[in-house]
Amino acid sequence: MSALEIKNRNELFTPEIRAEIDHEIAKYPEGESQSAAMAALRIVQDANGGWLTQESMDEVAAYLDLPPIAIYEVATFYSMYEHKPVGRNKLCVCTNISCMINNSDQIVEHLNNRLGIKFGEVTEDGRYSLKEVECLGACGGAPMMQVGRKYYENLTPERLDSILDELE
């Protein structure tokens, strides 16, 4: 199958998504569209409910005219790309030093108990998944977590409960 056929085949690659990727490609000098690989993967992952399938990676490769391996390398090197389904709300909890000494263990334990899942797991209803992350650069608000594009700082079990209730 030619690259163009693959491109045309997939529903994930809507005109909107192509436009978004094209916008990213335009940030780089001509002939350097590989630079848009990370952004393209992010855009496709967001459109696919927060994770990447092999097909979607192959399509990104075809769209950027790269060998699939170039995309697999990137998609598996960086921790923000997911390779299996995640919850609608991916709770990324920092447990690095500043958070750890501010009781991130207690935050993790509370999440484990309330949601019945551990790091790397998804709740049965698909509403939440849990991920351990490294320092997110918000140590002044430790303990903290990221959900989607948002940071939640100065977490306590009580605050967590109200945050979780608000996340659809």
């Binding site: 940030k27 990370m38 921790s79 923000m80 790309y81």
Partner: peptide
């Protein structure tokens, strides 16, 4: 002037 967003790698 453009932004390049990282992907999570220290």
């Amino acid at each position: 002037l453009n932004v390049h967003l990282g992907g999570g790698a220290y």
